[in-house]
Design a binder for these strands. Sequence first.
DNA 1: CCCATGTGAGACATCAATGTCTCATTCAAG
DNA 2: CTTGAATGAGACATTGATGTCTCACATGGG
Lengths: 191, 191
Amino acid sequence: MSHMGYGRLMAVDRAHVLRSAAALLTRKATATMDEVAKAAGISRATLHRQFAGRDALVRALEALGIEECEAALDAARLDEGPASEAVRRLVREIEPAAGLLSFLYTENQLFEGEQQNEGWERLDARISALFRRGQESGEFRIDLTPAWLTEALFGLVASGAWVVLNGKVAAKDFHHMIVELLLGGALRRES
Amino acid sequence: MSHMGYGRLMAVDRAHVLRSAAALLTRKATATMDEVAKAAGISRATLHRQFAGRDALVRALEALGIEECEAALDAARLDEGPASEAVRRLVREIEPAAGLLSFLYTENQLFEGEQQNEGWERLDARISALFRRGQESGEFRIDLTPAWLTEALFGLVASGAWVVLNGKVAAKDFHHMIVELLLGGALRRES
DNA sequence: CCCATGTGAGACATCAATGTCTCATTCAAG
DNA sequence: CTTGAATGAGACATTGATGTCTCACATGGG
């Protein structure tokens, strides 16, 4: 064991397994544990040693997604500068996690049970606070509630990841199309 | 029933079964055939007589969703008047089908297989044409592609159905919040 | 070299949902 | 009343994924 958390042999890289699983499940949400294992380059037995079951794996992915989102929120410094600029930074920072979020977004089981990860509420609260700040500063319109804008943001990120995955739009346009639609809308500005 | 298409006994109302299934699956996408049957007030045997299996049921729901969408597009008269007004009518007409669309949107299996219902392409084409018309008329900005605007529309409708279902926003605000965000964005207008 | 640990491969049981059947019952038409 | 059709209830087999186990093997440390 030495002083590391891992054993003498190169233990399975848990983060790498989660990455592979996220990438695969984003493309094929119904992938089996066997397919997940193969995608990660390990055996099903080893996968099961890391995650007690499919449910545990999905929960771990949920925790990872929440973790990355919170890191993105931190990096975006939502409290600084104009709210619209904060939104731009947020989308920029959250883009790497978009695929994973898209998967979690469709994994309704996460929200059906009694106990759901309170991390989502924390994220909602922080993003809602950003939109509320923008409203109070006069940047954002007030007829669209912060709760709705927050949900719309997640929905657009998921949709964006989806269209990029399907090749309908280029990955480089991800940030622009989400931010511009969310902030400016489809209508052409008069001025 | 006599000269109707049904037998002497009151046959199961297929449309009603689909309605119930859509309503249940919108809330709980992982519901079993047994739960679907109970929700429709029929036995599992009868449900299975109507739909060969879960897959057939989902396919029928997909067909229903497409059908309702196309009906909504027809009713919205996308070719008439300003494009923005057509979008408003479209969202208005599509609202009753939002829950079903939200379910179908998360049912990735529909898009994983080789053969996917070409109805989606038809819908995409018609809605994309609307956004393109708006761009050519100068109403809509041209830096957001029709393909993206179309996907965003579906995504926002699904998100809208979701937040209404969860009570985060009132059902009466559905149309306003989607149309205003899609067309106008979150930024407050200067003028 | 020897040992301990983590892994891959595969066999096996389990489990839940599904698909399939039978049979009694109910209801409406004749 | 009789009959035919459709349903409800339940038994049963099937299926696919999952959870569990054993065992051989490879590898790095002692």
